[in-house]
Computed example of a mutant assay.
Amino acid sequence: MKLIRRRWMAAFGLTLTTAACGTSGTTGAGERASLIKRAPLPENEFTAKEIEATLDNLIAEINKGSIEPMQMAVLLKALGGFFTPITTGANRAMGELGVTGNVVGPSGQGSDQQQRAEAQGEQIQQAVADGAEGIGVSPFGDAIAADIDAAVADGAAVVTLDTDAKDSTRSIYVGTISESAGVTAGQTLLALLPPSPGTVVIHGNADPSWVDGLNRMLGARGVLEEADYTVVVRQIAWGPAGQVDDIEWMKAQIETADPPVVGLLGLHDISYRCAMATEAAGAPELPVVAFDFDPKTVEYMRRGLIEATHTQRQYYAGYLVPYILYGIKTIGLEATQASLAPQMSDDSRLNVGLDVVRWNKVDQYNAFLDSIGASQ
């Protein structure tokens, strides 16, 4: 345990502090603490109204009981980039709840997935040792399932976000549901395609070892094949060298496929490579639909080479987790799940859904992200 503590303290200078803007808290003897109130967000066409309504329902149920102090920790795989809006949302929610807690990134221990998972497991152990009653974690895969199980056995509620550890005893997963996200992306492209026959290129994952990536691809492919298109899948290749390989492979498909390529669909944050392939093949008129909001994706959208992209509502994922942890502590898991029912895909997975951002709505979407403090 001393080794764990040294790593934690060295990596983060661990200081669990009470968030300053909380509206709940303790009062004098015999008095009830203030009700929990959320800070209102400006109305916008991208506001996730269904999530807002579900959260209001959860808070109403929490406010029927006693408002209690709580300590929690949110452990993320990173704090910048894709995880910046998650960090913003989680910190805001903890402030509104008035709980003691913080958001921390990886410890930096290890260079491969297994080593990072082991270091994250140590973070979970330390959070429990320091008194956390609730833990939100973006896991490095199912390798941390045993550490989650141990935390739950010690009395802590655990909620996963962004990625899941489905074989653990975590209470709820919060984030994008991969297959339904793929279905949505497939439907977005389908609306832009000419009548079949035609070939559609999917830039995604076909490797069964990455279950979420595979499920996203299968959801999209199912939509397009059901509409009688021929679908070819380019196995995504990460890194600079992978970009060259991806573009060349997709370019060759555009030039030689029979029936001809009529559209391209990218399912990850480097989806802009689909637009690069259409340029390389001299076919910039082909419709391209992307995923996530990488600056290069935005650049190609502004140029009219990507018709739409799908963003994963990271802010809402981060914002929901502290409220769910607090609900589990104060009203119990079953009552919390019942309050969240409109957003639950099944008994233990909450779907934050996607924002579909069209090429001509980039500025409006950036303004929305700025308004909630969630720009990447």
Rank of each mutant, 00 (worst) to 15 (best):
V174M: 02
V99L: 06
P295A: 14
G131Q: 08
T163G: 07
G141M: 10
E285M: 08
L79A: 05
R92F: 00
V231I: 06
S271I: 10
G219Y: 00
G134F: 05
A275Y: 03
W249S: 02
G318Y: 13
E307T: 09
A181I: 06
I306F: 04
L55H: 02
I86H: 08
V231S: 00
D167T: 15
D228Y: 01
N102F: 03
Q109P: 12
V233N: 05
Q243I: 02
Y323M: 11
K37P: 00
A10W: 00
T199L: 11
R349N: 15
A280N: 11
M301I: 10
I36H: 06
A153T: 11
G95L: 02
L218G: 02
G304W: 09
K361R: 15
D363P: 14
P208C: 03
P195M: 06
T199D: 09
A281Q: 14
G353R: 13
A127Y: 06
G327S: 12
I135L: 13
L267K: 04
I62V: 10
Q243L: 02
P195S: 15
S171C: 04
I177L: 08
S339L: 04
I202Q: 00
M70F: 01
A117K: 12
L41I: 05
R216T: 01
Q312W: 08
T27L: 13
Q71E: 06
L75E: 00
A165Y: 03
A280T: 12
G373T: 14
V99R: 10
S371R: 13
A157T: 05
Q113H: 07
G242C: 02
I270R: 10
A78L: 12
G327C: 03
D258T: 13
R92Y: 01
I4P: 01
Q312H: 15
Y229A: 00
I306W: 04
S271L: 07
D112V: 09
K296D: 12
S168R: 03
E279T: 12
R38A: 01
G332A: 08
I148D: 01
Q364N: 15
D142Y: 04
P259A: 02
L3S: 07
L369E: 15
S180Y: 04
E248M: 11
